[in-house]
Design a protein around this nucleic acid. Structure first.
Length: 141
DNA sequence: CTACGCTCAGATA
DNA sequence: TATCTGAGCGTAG
């Protein structure tokens, strides 16, 4: 193993992370940024196939990635796109979202306009407040 | 096989 | 409006 090569590799990773951090900060400041695309451009491998092993979960997240900045959708709408009525099952996939913000599950609310859950919690919670906040940020520009 | 859930539409008061 | 069904179905154990 060439130590110098490993070192270069680590340096590169660190650089990527710092660039990502800057991008996320800009996003949180209200700039219209597609975080997922940015990450691809930075060359960061998200290992999505490992994180979403089943066919169903892959459909859910790929459908979610087509929801653009500032848009809102709901669980049953995603179900229609992927040809399933399993709204709760979709929620179950989203609750295990390993990449919040990047995979924009905060853009998915309930059909009746309620906020829905976030990060695995559906009751009145700081998670829901955060979800609302993220939606507000995207609609403020 | 069972139990559970970031849901939904319908019923009831 | 608020609260309670049952249906629906992929996933984890």
């Amino acid at each position: 193993m060439n130590l110098k090569l490993v070192d270069e590799c680590e340096k590169n990773k660190i650089k990527q992370i710092f660039e990502l951090k800057e991008t996320i900060l800009e996003y949180l400041a209200g700039k219209n940024i597609n975080l997922f695309e940015t990450i691809k451009e930075l060359g960061i491998d998200l290992h999505l196939n490992d994180k979403f092993p089943s066919k169903f979960s892959q459909k859910v997240y790929s459908s979610l990635l087509s929801v653009k900045y500032g848009e809102l959708t709901n669980y049953s709408e995603i179900g229609e796109k992927i040809g399933s009525k399993a709204n709760r099952a979709i929620g179950n996939i989203l609750r295990g979202n390993p990449l919040p913000l990047i995979i924009p599950c905060h853009r998915v609310i309930k059909k009746n306009g309620e906020i829905g859950g976030f990060m695995g919690i559906s009751e009145k919670s700081w998670q829901q407040t955060l979800k609302k906040k993220l939606i507000e940020i995207e609609h403020s520009t």
